[in-house]
């Protein structure tokens, strides 16, 4: 048992049209420090709900979440940064200002401007400080969103299908970029994706969710980069697809 992040018996129930629907059912999960956890599953399997509970955007109906042994609550959330599927940049702020946005004004310091510039370099966007979101491509906007999530130096980075809206080539480039940043930053990354290949290419551990429960857990213990032609990669893809219920 780890004492980094632990989820115990988490359930989330939504009421719609007079009936209750469980997005998560009695889910228990331990998340390790510095791991890249990829969560896969079909639509409606509870992946995004899990991430939203981790980000304190939603409260579980039952169960508890602890960070380093301390109970998390709306007043004591998990120290995390989040990247959404759409970059969600403030359209009236420049790339640099969007990174600074991670800090509410009461938390801003004199050094923040320089730190934000360095963060833009980290995500490969030096020189784009004054660019407005409408001037950035989808991949560039996601890099800014990633910089915004990283600058607070949170213990956990939550990624909600961050590459889902990108074209194939940008997506592959961003996958490599995310792996580079993951290896450089030494933080826990938790990424939700519906792309099994992406999960296995990036995650150090992959969990499969189905109907709000954990169906399978796979440790991916071979190093980056992980080419598709690698037989181990193919075997793991089959395993995950079987767990999702799409094995052919």
């Amino acid at each position: 048992m780890t004492d980094f992040i632990s989820l115990r018996n988490i359930s989330k129930c939504y009421s719609a049209a007079g009936r209750s629907v469980f997005a998560l059912k009695d889910l228990s999960l331990d998340i390790r420090e510095n791991e890249f956890l990829a969560v896969v599953g079909r639509s409606g399997s509870g992946k995004t709900t899990l991430l939203r509970i981790l980000a304190s955007l939603e409260e579980p109906t039952a169960g508890e979440m602890r960070f380093r042994g301390k109970l998390c609550s709306p007043g004591n959330p998990l120290p995390s940064g989040m990247v959404f599927q759409d970059a969600r940049l403030m359209p009236w702020l420049s790339a640099l200002e969007n990174i600074i946005f991670a800090f509410p004004p009461r938390e801003r310091t004199a050094e923040l401007h320089e730190a934000a510039k360095k963060m833009l370099e980290t995500v490969g966007l030096s020189g784009c400080e004054r660019s407005m979101p409408r001037e950035l491509s989808g991949g560039m906007a996601q890099r800014v969103a990633l910089g915004r999530a990283l600058i607070k130096n949170p213990s956990v980075i939550l990624l909600d299908e961050p590459l889902g809206a990108l074209d194939y080539f940008t997506r592959r480039a961003m996958q490599r970029e995310l792996i580079r940043i993951y290896l450089q930053e030494k933080k826990s990354f938790i990424m939700v994706t519906h792309d099994v290949g992406e999960a296995l290419r990036m995650g150090t551990r992959v969990i499969v969710l189905g109907e709000g429960q954990m169906r399978k857990e796979i440790n991916v213990d071979f190093s980056y980069p992980r080419p598709r032609s690698d037989p181990r990669f193919q075997r793991l893809i089959d395993e995950v697809l079987d767990a999702i219920g799409d094995g052919e």
Partner: peptide
């Protein structure tokens, strides 16, 4: 945009 308000929530804006 409710999404932008969620971003602010994630970063601890009151």
């Amino acid at each position: 945009d409710a999404g932008l308000l969620e971003v602010a929530s994630v970063f601890g804006y009151n």
